[in-house]
């Protein structure tokens, strides 16, 4: 049962504080949506969770182990936490299938024959069986983002982080990516999303956190945060985006 517990996490870039004391608990099977204006710290928070950014203060525990301890091997954390980015970041010199197979092959030392069936199944599950051998520049944005999700899932992570994964997509392609998230949600995947898709957050999240200036100003069930926000800033934000 993976749980990720953040306690009083601080992070600055130079003299610019981005996270100013974040407390957050991600329990197994939960889906948490982070909402808030650009620059409120959502992306940085996700990057801190998989140790792409070292934190300045506070702690991050994964199953009771303090992974934010300086010197802790970040590779072991990242192998258990999958991340999908706004701009897909597929490797352009590899086919979709090779993108998905690189990390399992190098880290689990599995042969191509051993893992190809498992990864092919992933492509089939998300409707990309006929696109496996295409290169990223031969795929639409929505397809590329779905491949990026498959690439992260190929490592069989226990937690998935999604950093505004639909923000770079044309509106008509957003749906196919959100469907993948719905599918993962139904399978019980533990997920943390930074998102601007308020309707989606309201429909599926267990917990919605509103970030403002590096703090979680308000969090709770979606119907509570969206319908009866307690904070003036939350109300102002929601009235701008809804």
């Amino acid at each position: 049962m993976p749980t990720l517990i953040l306690t009083d996490v601080h992070k600055s870039f130079g003299t610019n504080p981005v996270l100013r004391g974040i407390d957050l608990t991600v329990t197994s099977g939960q889906m948490i949506c982070l909402i808030g204006a650009s620059g409120s710290g959502k992306s940085t928070l996700l990057r801190c969770m998989n140790l792409l950014e070292p934190i300045d203060d506070g702690r991050i525990e994964l199953d009771g182990i303090d992974i934010s301890e300086p010197g802790y091997d970040p590779q072991r954390v990242r192998q258990r936490i999958g991340t999908v980015f706004q701009s897909y970041n597929l490797f352009p010199h590899m086919s979709a299938l090779e993108n998905a197979m690189l990390a399992p092959r190098r880290i689990h030392r599995q042969s191509r024959e051993e893992m190809e069936p498992r990864i092919t199944t992933l492509f089939a599950r998300f409707g990309l069986a006929d696109r496996m051998h295409h290169y990223p520049d031969q795929l639409s944005g929505g397809q590329q983002q779905r491949v990026a999700i498959i690439r992260a899932l190929a490592m069989q992570p226990q937690i998935m982080l999604f950093d505004e994964i639909t923000s770079a997509l044309d509106p008509e392609l957003v749906g196919e990516v959100l469907d993948v998230l719905r599918q993962l949600r139904a399978e019980g995947m533990t997920m943390v999303l930074a998102t601007h898709e308020m309707g989606f957050a309201r429909e599926l999240a267990d917990t919605v956190c509103f970030l403002h200036a590096g703090r979680i100003l308000e969090s709770g069930r979606p119907e509570q945060v969206f319908v009866h926000p307690q904070q003036e800033r939350t109300r102002a934000f929601l009235s701008r985006v809804l």
Partner: peptide
């Protein structure tokens, strides 16, 4: 740098990131 970030967040080591992701490109 986003290519590096993507490779590292899959759990690849930095030498594998260089060898399989950065250098070929």
């Amino acid at each position: 740098d986003s290519q590096r970030a993507a490779a590292l967040s899959l759990g690849l080591s930095s030498s594998d990131t260089m060898r399989f992701v950065i250098l070929p490109q």
